[in-house]
Computed example of a mutant assay.
Amino acid sequence: MRCPFCAHDDSQVKDSRPTEDNTAIRRRRQCESCGARFTTFERVQLRDIAVIKSGGGESPPRREPFDRAKIEQSVTIATRKRGIAQERLDQLVSGVQRQIETLGENEVEARAIGEMVMDGLRQLDAVAYIRFASVYRDFTEARDFEEFAGSVRDVAQS
């Protein structure tokens, strides 16, 4: 494993243990060159999955490899300052990844992934759900927020 500090190719594993939800192995490593310590995660990947991104307008759709880190980043931004435990965020992201992998398809639309994330956030935190939706659904006016928040409130009351 390449050291993120000095780019040396060799590191030594100092500690390995499963993550809280048993979906990955956390490894503490130490670079053999500079001595820096860093953490890596090993996860099961059932197959290579391509994400189909809509081209928008006249341009054709494009494909890119599925990247769990993009979901993690989006969820982290949506839940910032909401006091949600990292373990619950990891469970959400792992759940979305499992849903994608169990579809049995080699390609999945970005729109479907966004809906899966929204479903998970809706159950986790209403504010994070609205934050994510505002970017995902491209809210452009305050009225968009009002209408969406109203629909969230109506669902919560029923």
Score class of each variant (00 low, 15 high):
residue 156 A to P: 02
residue 116 M to H: 04
residue 82 R to Y: 02
residue 95 G to Y: 01
residue 81 K to H: 08
residue 105 E to W: 06
residue 54 S to L: 10
residue 20 E to T: 14
residue 146 E to P: 01
residue 107 E to K: 06
residue 44 V to K: 12
residue 17 R to W: 04
residue 109 E to L: 09
residue 43 R to L: 08
residue 1 M to S: 09
residue 154 D to E: 15
residue 148 F to G: 02
residue 85 A to Q: 13
residue 147 E to V: 12
residue 124 L to G: 01
residue 158 S to T: 14
residue 60 P to R: 12
residue 104 G to Q: 07
residue 107 E to Q: 13
residue 77 I to F: 08
residue 147 E to I: 13
residue 97 Q to D: 15
residue 99 Q to S: 15
residue 22 N to T: 12
residue 135 V to H: 04
residue 3 C to Y: 01
residue 91 Q to T: 11
residue 77 I to N: 11
residue 146 E to A: 14
residue 41 F to W: 07
residue 103 L to A: 12
residue 1 M to T: 09
residue 64 E to R: 12
residue 31 C to V: 03
residue 77 I to W: 09
residue 4 P to S: 05
residue 48 D to W: 05
residue 123 Q to D: 15
residue 153 R to V: 11
residue 110 A to P: 02
residue 30 Q to E: 15
residue 72 E to V: 11
residue 97 Q to L: 10
residue 11 S to L: 00
residue 14 K to V: 13
residue 78 A to T: 03
residue 41 F to P: 00
residue 25 I to T: 13
residue 156 A to L: 13
residue 143 R to I: 08
residue 155 V to H: 13
residue 87 E to P: 02
residue 45 Q to A: 13
residue 23 T to I: 04
residue 4 P to C: 06
residue 119 D to G: 10
residue 45 Q to S: 13
residue 153 R to W: 07
residue 1 M to G: 07
residue 38 F to P: 01
residue 53 K to C: 08
residue 158 S to Y: 07
residue 30 Q to M: 13
residue 23 T to Y: 04
residue 27 R to D: 01
residue 40 T to H: 01
